[in-house]
């Protein structure tokens, strides 16, 4: 292994250990305020190896979307619900939890075995679409695909995203609207 390759591997391994540790924090931390930055570190670190896979546009979009649409609303949602709600110690380990943990642990070795002993390059023949033409940047290719072939599948998600954001605001403000509507009735009853 040459020196630049080893440095490259070291950087990639360190950027892969960030999401693993962050996901452990998301799963294991009990206080709901603490998993929020762990989730942010996961989404930030998991996009670090993407440029090495010629997916720099996906890395940028992942950081932007996860920072703006996922990780920023999480603390704002955590703040109103972050009252102490675990006065009692954690529930004891039940039989169902043990079975679930055993199944999850037993699923890991065959999956790793399948990944290691499958010849991925033999199953999927690599077809270079632009073998004869000049190589273009991945951003240009993504733009070309998303504006020509994949335009219909990409329009509904944009509408779904808009409707979901408006619906989220409506759902989150519903109680306040109901409270404003019921307030005059309470005054009449008084």
């Amino acid at each position: 292994m040459s020196s630049p390759e080893s440095v490259h591997d070291a950087v990639l391994v360190s950027s892969a250990s960030g999401p693993a540790l962050g996901s452990l924090g998301v799963v294991s931390l009990v206080n709901i305020v603490h998993p929020a930055p762990s989730s942010g570190s996961v989404s930030a670190c998991i996009s670090l190896p993407h440029p090495s896979m010629n997916a720099d546009f996906a890395a940028a979009v992942q950081i932007l979307i996860h920072a703006g649409a996922v990780n920023v609303p999480i603390p704002f949602a955590a703040m109103p619900v972050s009252q102490p709600q675990y006065p009692h110690p954690a529930k004891p380990w039940t039989v169902g939890d043990g079975i679930t943990s055993a199944l999850r642990t037993s699923a890991f070795p065959p999956l790793i075995n399948m990944i290691l002993y499958t010849s991925w390059y033999r199953i999927f023949p690599i077809v270079l679409r632009n073998a004869g033409s000049s190589p273009t940047h991945s951003v240009q290719r993504i733009g070309s695909y998303s504006s020509t072939e994949s335009l219909p599948p990409f329009e509904p998600p944009s509408i779904v995203l808009l409707v979901a954001l408006v619906g989220a605001i409506t759902v989150a403000r519903r109680e306040q609207v109901i409270g404003q509507e019921t307030e005059p009735a309470l005054r009449i009853d008084d």
Binding site: A55, F57, A58, V61, Q62, I65, H66, A69, V70, P73, I74, F76, A77, P80, V81, W120, Y121, F124, I126, V127, L128, R129, S138, R141, I142, Y145, S146, S150, P153, F154, P157, S158, V160, L161, A164, L165, G167, A168, I169, V171, A172
Partner: peptide, 30 residues
Amino acid sequence: LLDDMMGQLLALFILAVAAADSAMGLAILV
């Protein structure tokens, strides 16, 4: 691995769906 840009397009698609999912999930949670 396949030199196919459709994988990156699907990744962007999943990111958009994940953002909508997170927004609705947090609203329902609150």
